[in-house]
């Protein structure tokens, strides 16, 4: 049952990424290109996505997930080194290629060899992140 709804959530997410144009790197890089031909599409996508999620968070109050367990507790509102350095690094890669993890997966079927190269490098980065987190950010 959990897997079935995970598949459904993933399908909605994948459909949304595909239809919204977020798997098109020119749209993503266009959003970041404030000094060039700026493309506001990403703001509409973000706005559209935040609406159902906002109501979903409201529905989590005083309730339990339908399939049992507990809702994720809010993390400590701490802005650590990890969050800042990680987000800046992510932003650099995102700007360079115009791809982030969701769209990278959603476009694997039609993004050609380049899409798979990016995906493989991203997976390698995720493996590399384990020792980086342990050694460089041991305190955070």
């Amino acid at each position: 049952m959990r897997n079935l709804f995970a598949l459904l959530a993933g399908a909605l997410f994948g459909a949304g990424l595909f239809i919204s144009g977020m798997t098109d790197t020119t749209k993503v890089q266009g959003w970041l290109d404030v000094f060039g031909a700026w493309d506001p599409t990403l703001a509409f996508v973000m706005g559209g996505a935040i609406i159902p999620m906002f109501f979903a968070w409201r529905l989590t109050e005083r309730r339990k997930p339908v399939l049992g367990g507990d809702f994720p507790t809010p993390p400590e509102p701490k802005i650590g080194k990890n969050l800042i350095v990680g987000s800046v690094m992510f932003g650099i890669g995102w700007g360079m290629a115009g791809l982030c993890p969701g769209p990278s997966m959603a476009s694997l079927s039609y993004g050609g060899i380049g899409g798979w190269v990016f995906f493989a490098a991203m997976v390698a980065g995720m493996i590399l992140a384990v020792p980086v987190k342990k050694r460089v950010f041991a305190t955070a």
């Binding site: 932003g91 890669g93 995102w94 290629a97 991203m122 992140a129």
Partner: peptide, 9 residues
């Protein structure tokens, strides 16, 4: 770019 996205996220 992929490496940066992987490590960063």
């Amino acid at each position: 770019a992929g490496l940066f996205v992987g490590v960063g996220t």
